[in-house]
Amino acid sequence: MEIYQLRTFVAVAQQGHLTQAAELLHLSQPAVTAQIKALEEELGSSLFERYPGGVQLTEAGKILLPEAENILASSRGMLQRARGLVGELKGKVRIGTIGVPSRLKLGPWLALLRSRHPLISVQTQHAISGVVLNEVRKKGLDGGFYLGRNPYQNVNNMVLSEIGFCIAMPPEWAAQAEDGEWRTLGQMPWLGVSQFNSLATITQELWREKNISPRKVGEFDEEATLVELIRAGLGMAILAERTARRFAADGSIALWRAGEVVTSAPLQFIYSADREEEPMLALLRDGLREVWAVDDSDGRG
């Protein structure tokens, strides 16, 4: 069964006459007759009854006509869709992710990209900020998320949001720190953070600002690990405000000064500076701009 046969079937049904259908389809009447006969043989049913003034649908023809019309409509839709894809950007993009996907609005962003650019395939690679930054610089990643200040001129950045941080500690330590003094915190054990994690830089800057030098307990590279170790009573650390408040709500951790935001850092999308004008990077930024409702006109650095 061919599309052209169904088109002829529908035309004859609508015109009620072989000659008129042939004129509409720019075919000869014998060609129309041959197509209808071939279709009837394949379907095993007679579609039309002939009479001197023309043709009319049989009961089988009446049942099958809507099916034929639906198939033709689907084929037209497919053709239009295919034509619409001509010139569409296509290819694979590699994106570095950090932390919690919901914090990055990863789902809404990728869903938007998929709806607008269906020929683009996205591959994500989860890591810590320093690794993402290095992979973007080496072009192992097309772009990625980064928490902290961008230190490189050859990496452009689009600031998405400012993330606030609170100091979290085991609940049993809260009484020791209730005087609210930084010098008291400086005498308590802190969880060290891997140098490739942006939290390491943020923590070190905070310590310098407050003139404290706490004893570090190990070095760890993920916020989820820090939460687990705080809950286990191993040490204290800064956590993103949203994370800190979520775990403090069930009493598994305590927040210093009732969850005061002690510092902040920008959450950014980063990419190689020499790819600024590439269409693929432009559409990634366009999607982020819409999902985050930000203006990155001054965000290059």
Rank of each mutant, 00 (worst) to 15 (best):
E2Y: 04
E2A: 01
R7Q: 14
T8G: 08
G16D: 13
H17D: 15
T19G: 04
A21Q: 12
A22D: 14
L25T: 14
L25V: 05
H26Q: 14
L27I: 05
T33K: 00
A34N: 10
A38C: 04
L39D: 03
E42A: 07
S45L: 09
P52M: 06
L57E: 06
L65P: 00
P66I: 09
A68D: 03
N70V: 15
S74G: 00
G77N: 09
L79I: 14
R83C: 03
V86Q: 10
E88H: 14
K92A: 14
V93C: 02
I95H: 03
G96M: 10
G96C: 09
T97Y: 01
L104S: 05
P108S: 00
H126P: 00
L133D: 09
N134V: 04
V136F: 02
R137F: 10
G143E: 13
L147Q: 07
N150Q: 14
P151T: 11
N154G: 11
N157K: 11
S161E: 15
C166F: 06
I167H: 06
P170F: 02
A174E: 15
A177F: 07
G180A: 11
E181S: 13
R183V: 15
W190Y: 06
F196R: 08
F196I: 10
A200L: 03
A200V: 01
T203I: 06
L206E: 02
R208L: 13
R208H: 12
N211I: 03
I212P: 01
G218S: 07
G218P: 12
D221F: 04
D221Q: 10
E223G: 08
L229E: 06
A232E: 08
A232Y: 00
A237E: 13
L239G: 01
A249T: 13
D250A: 05
G251N: 02
A254F: 12
W256P: 07
W256E: 04
L267I: 05
Y271Q: 10
R275H: 08
E276F: 13
P279Y: 03
M280V: 15
G287Y: 02
R289M: 05
V294C: 02
R300E: 01
R300P: 01
